[in-house]
Each structure stands twice: as C-alpha cells, then as structure tokens.
Design a protein around this nucleic acid. Structure first.
Lengths: 399, 399
DNA sequence: CGCTATTGATTCGGTCCCCTGACGAATCAA
DNA sequence: TTGATTCGTCAGGGGACCGAATCAATAGCG
C-alpha cells in the first residue's frame, strides 16, 4: 500500500481532522463528522470517500429512531493497518493493535537467554503467531516499537548499554527486525515507554508533566515534559542510577553501577538486608514480605529504600517540577511503598507532589510501545512532517 | 495596527516562509526569495507587496554588476515593530530591538529599592527614554518580556517566589506593565532567559540540549530540552537550590532556603569562609580573589563550592542528559571555576559533558528576554496557532 | 394514508491561493 | 546595436475550501 501522491497541506489538514474525529467518536456519520471537525459537509464527504477507497474506514450501520433521513455510520477499519508493541525484558511481551488503538492480542514468554540474535528471532516468531491467530498477516503491520532496557541513542536508534540481553548492543536491531517483520521499527527505552503506557491507559492519563520512577533490577526515571518525552542528547536522560545519593559517589562499586542504583536497585536491597544481618533471601519480594510480616531488619531496609527513593524523587521534583510521580518496577510497584515514599517526600520537597503506583505493572512497557507505534503510524498517514520541514523557526540571526 | 483579517493557513505558511528568508538573508530580491523559499515568483511577489503595504519591509537598494535586469533588494523595516527585553534583578536592565533582532539600545541602572510598584514605574520610565532616544515611540513596541528571579507560574504569569523585589508577588505585573507600556507583556524566570540568551548570542548557539547552571545569590538551573524550555508544572523546574546535596536536607536552614543553596549560594560561600576561620569578607568576589592570592582557607571554600556544584551538575546530567552545561551567575561565572567543576565532574559522570562559562555575563538575562519577545512577535505575526488549535493530537482513546 | 418537518448527503457556483508559462523591462557583453 | 540573461508581472489552470440549493429518506401528525 504505497502512500498516495501526497495531498496538499490543506487537504492533509482536513484528512487529519477527520481521522481524529473518527478515532474519538467512532461510529459517526458524515454529517456529524462535518460538525465535529468544523469542515464543510462536502469536504468531509470527499475525505471519507478517499478513506473508504483506501480501506481506512468502513460503514458500520445506520442511524435509526431519529427524525430525518438515516445516516450511514462509519468507523476506522481494522484492515486499515496494524501496529506491534514489543517489550524485551526478562520476559518477552508482544501486543498487536489495530489503527484505532484496539488491542487485538497480547502474548508473553521468557526471553531466549542466548542473547541478541536469538531474541530477535523469538520476537519474529511470536509476532507472526500473534498475527496469524488474529486472522491477519504480518505484512499488514505497519509500525513496530520495541521497548528495551539500556540507553537508546535517539538519533541512530542503537542500543548502547543493554544490561540484560547479551549482544544486543552489537546488532543493528532496527535494520534486522525491520527486515524480518517487513515494517519500520523504532526502539525506545523501556522506562520511557512504561511512562507513556501509564499516560495512555494507566494512572497518568490527562497529566501534562509526569515522571515515572522505575525501581527494579535497575533504577531509572522517565520524564514527560511540555508534551514530549525527554530523551537527552545521548538518550541517557533519566539514568538516575548515577545520582550521587545514598553513598560516596566516588566509591568503586558506586561509580561502576551508579551510586543510587547500588543502594536501591534490586541487588542493592538484597545486599543491604544481608549486610544488616538478614539471610536466606534471593529476591526483593522476600525482603518486602518479611518487612510486612514484622521482621525489623527487613523493615529497616525497606524504610531506607523508601528514604533514598524519596531523595531521588525530590531531586527529580527540584529539577523538572512534575505534577505527578508514578512508581513502577518490581521494587517500586510494591504496595504501600508509594505511601512510604510520599511520607519521606513531605519532609523534603518545598511543595507536595502526588505519587501513585503504576496500575499497568508489567504491561506498562508493552502498552507504551503500542501507543508510540500507533502515533508513528498516525503521523505517517496524517502527519505534517513536510510542514515542520518547510518551516524551521531557526536560531535568530545575529544583530 | 490591527492584525489583518487572518490569512488562510496556506497563505500564512507562505508569509512565514518569506519572513524567515528575509530574517536570515537580509538584503534579498524577490527572485531570490522565491528560490530560497521554494514558492513561485508570483506568490513571493504577492507576499512582499503585502509586507510592503504593512510597513514590514522596505526596499534597500538594487543589485548591480550582474548580467541581467537589476533587482530591487528588500530588508525588514525597523518600522515593522520593536520589542523590549527587561531584566529586573539587583540592577534593572532594559534593551530595545527591532523586528529583525537588531539591538538598538540598552540601558541599566540600580533597581528602585522600594519594591514592586516603584520598580514597575522605573521600568516604564526607562523604556520610554530608550524609545525616545531611538526616535521611536513606545507605541511601536509590540512585545515585551520581563526577566525576574523567582518562580513564574507558566499559566497565570504570576511571580510566586520573588526573593529580591519586595511586593512583586502581590502585583499583577503582566496587567500593570502591559497597561503602562501599551503592549503585551510576558514574564519568565531570569535563569531561563539567561539560558536562552546564551543560546541566541552567547556560548550555547546551535546546541539542542543545554543546561544553564546559575550560581549567585540564589542557585538554579535553566533547562532547554527537545527544542523547548522546561518550566515544569508550577514553573518551578530548575529550582535546584532544594537538591539534597551538601548537607542534611532535613536541617532547618536547609529546608527553608534549600539544602544546596544554603551551601553554594553567595551567602553560603561567605558563611563557609567565616566558619572556616576567614574573616572580613562581604562578597563572594573577595573570597575568590583571596583563593587566587593563595589564601588556603579561601581555596578550600572555593574547592568545596566546585565540588558541590559538580554534584549538582552530575545530578542534572543524570536527569536530563544535556550536551552542554553553561555556568553563569556571579559565583558561577568566575574565571577558572568552570575548569574546577569540570574536573570534579570527570570523576562523577559516566560520560563527559562539556562545561562552558557564560559569555554574556550579566547581559544574558536581558538578551534572552529580547529573544523571547522577538519570538513572540514573530509568532503573533506569522504563527500557526490556529493550526495547533485545530489539530490537537489528543490522548489516544481507550480500546 | 399522505403531508410536513427534519435531517443526511450531493451538486453547483464562487473564492482563495498556488503554480506554470509567457511576456515586457532592464541590464551586461560582444 | 544585438543577444543573452535576469527580474518582475500578467494570465490561465487546478486544487481545495465554503455556502446555498437540491435531492433523499425518515418520523410524526392529522
């Protein structure tokens, strides 16, 4: 399906307007579309006809019961295109959605431990199965987004510090996966995508400035500011594992792994519990459960973890002033943990900031990946890239 | 000069294109404008005719020496509109520029110490004098931006924590100043504007992600990310005086003033020098001069200041990953201080980040104010606000 | 049962804006 | 003086928008 010979700017605006309206008021008639978009009835009709011919839209019924002529109702056709979201963590999660954002299927399995190339094969297999199970074909997939831990270079898309999947950094993931699956692939840091997931379907909807504080194996924060994700010059924004909190930032382990992560990361929590005299734990979960069961050592470790997390949150608040902080990750999403952090924060921050626990949990990453894949597809079809390209507001000239 | 009856989107695009070309290649003919913008000669000519009638543009000469017909060269007319930049700190600085960004005049004097209303009067007087001295009239000024310390609410424009100017928080500055001067006024935090100043005419040109670390009476950072200023939900982004660095963040003074600012702010530097046994100083400058002269106590204080600044910089780097950090403010702009901080940072940050000293110094704020005033005027004349309003890419709908 | 009011969708004429191609105007070079 | 070249304008065609008029289909009412 080659993109048609590029409508004029003004037509593209109309197309986009109509598409937006279809997205949000799904079964809708041509007349109502005209009212909603503010376009004239003729323009609306022309656009709908074009969409119909492209297979983007389909009639879904007629109105009845109202006085006046019946109207044909339209909705976005599932045939209009599919998108794929992938979360490549300890488990591999893949989800399929249609162009309207309806999630059609979701599947996950343990990630192939042998490393990069095998994982890519696994993704390809799982995606193909998902597509077949939903009576579609991988070629219908028009946009793919992959969530991965590590630093993703925002220009090249290279994965630069993938801690979990061996050999991923040496692969041209965008190229290889795109070739395997036959559609454009984008990569984004998993924490950033978890943030977007919470903003789309989770606990951070309709909030303009959000930070997603992920505490798990690693520590990181995703920032959404001014309606945009903050990636940073090298894609390393939010790598707060390196914050000088919780110890001497010049110490060997701290420098290597990051000072804060050394204390608050999953390994750090377990280590601190052992150092305090606790024993026989190999997961953070156990430490938290013992704390809840009354183990004073575990309680101390949890409280200290909350204190350090509060300091990290205070740092983020002082720096970017978000409206909301979402706690996620295997450590951060523990029940009651958000309350503990909030209590710490009350004594630290000059003004209170709401703290919530992630509601999507492990699904946040894949949901966020879907949302970005969807946005990319929408922008490809109805974007105004040429407009932005034609009109850079460049640096003002010297006097 | 009422804005004309709002051209269509496509005409507005053309107008803007032509304007951009005029801005950057100033003496330019209609034919060359057509080549540069990609518009047809016809359209270009129509736009130029309209600009001419509006007084936005004026013929400035003709080409000669080339084969072929001579071309009439145009440039943006100084009569097209003026903008005013104001920096309201310990001193009051005001600068006047024309629509092309040519700085026409600049003046400063000590700020009226009696507080808010007097300061506004003073601004009004100084602005009027500047306008008269440049053979223009205040009514020609079409956009004004005021730099002020404190937290500026991004929605209301209210100044919420102005530490220096008494009573400024209780005034409707936008309204009062706008009435006095007869044109729209915007307020922005002085550090943010200093950052924009450095990006426009200073040491941060052509850099996409920048942090401006201001160390003076107060401590703060201005962040420029993804082509936008980061203001935060309450305009409190960059208030890193409250970072939990350099002491116990729960201590009384630290909580009140901000933990980091208590140590690194001008008052903190002097206090630390006194506490170390030094005496007879009442300015940071003296401490730095003594350090340079070999006073070991002063040296220690300066080194500790650099260490804490390095920690703050590391925090900013870990959080937003800028490409460049600019040091400014009365403390931060000290010569050699940037080097000291860079050395600290080398041992802290996972990757090196360039550090520069502000080149605009005290002028950074007013230059930044000019740049924003200019952008606002340009957007008013050639902006695509309606486009953005017509086409929100709204939150994706639930499945 | 037929008429009317109402609403949906299409057709028609007019306008705005952009582009192309042709043409007169002004200049340099030979 | 003539030709080549470049600048700027004029005239015509096409895309896209809108408003008004018109046809189509239905519910409600007498």
């Amino acid at each position: 399906m080659p993109s048609q010979p590029m409508a004029s700017v003004t037509r593209q605006l109309s197309r986009r307007s109509v598409f937006e309206a279809l997205l949000h008021r799904s079964p809708i008639s041509r007349a109502d579309l005209a009212k909603v978009t503010g376009l004239s009835k003729q323009t609306t009709s022309e656009v709908i006809d074009a969409f119909d011919q492209q297979g983007l839209v389909r009639p879904i019924g007629r109105t009845s019961g109202n006085v006046g002529r019946t109207a044909v109702l339209y909705e976005l056709s599932p045939e209009g295109g599919h998108v794929l979201g992938i979360d490549l963590g300890a488990r591999l999660t893949v989800a399929l959605a249609d162009i309207a954002g309806r999630v059609l299927a979701e599947a996950d399995e343990p990630t192939d431990g042998r490393g990069g190339a095998w994982a890519l094969d696994q993704i390809s297999r799982l995606a193909g199965r998902l597509a077949r199970d939903n009576h579609t074909h991988p070629s219908r997939i028009r946009s793919i987004v992959l969530a991965t831990p590590g630093v993703v270079n925002p220009r090249s898309g290279a994965v630069e510090m993938a801690p979990n999947i061996a050999g991923l950094g040496n692969l041209n993931v965008v190229g290889l996966l795109g070739e395997k699956l036959g559609s454009p692939v984008a990569i984004e840091n998993d924490i950033n995508l978890a943030l977007l997931g919470e903003m789309w379907h989770g606990c951070a909807q309709n909030v303009a400035n959000v930070a997603f504080l992920a505490l798990g194996t690693g520590v990181g924060v995703g920032l959404y500011v001014n309606g945009q994700l903050v990636r940073g010059e090298n894609g390393a924004a939010g790598e707060i594992g390196y914050l000088p909190i919780g110890g001497d930032p010049l110490q060997a382990e701290a420098r290597l792994q990051g000072c804060l992560e050394y204390q608050v990361g999953a390994a750090g929590v377990i280590r601190r519990y052992r150092e305090a005299g606790g024993s026989d734990v190999d997961s953070v979960r156990q430490v938290f459960e013992r704390a809840q069961a009354g183990d004073p050592l575990a309680s101390g470790v949890v409280d200290e973890t909350a204190r350090l997390t509060g300091l990290a949150a205070a740092t983020v608040i002082a720096t970017v002033d978000p409206q909301l902080i979402v706690l996620g990750g295997s450590v951060g999403a523990r029940p009651d943990f958000a309350d503990k952090v909030a209590r710490v924060l009350l004594r630290l921050a000059p003004r209170p900031v709401e703290i919530r626990t992630s509601t999507l949990g492990k699904r946040a990453g894949v949901v966020g990946a879907l949302s970005v894949a969807l946005s990319r597809l929408h922008d490809e079809l109805f974007g105004l890239a040429e407009l932005a390209a034609t009109l850079p507001l460049p640096p003002l000239r010297a006097s």
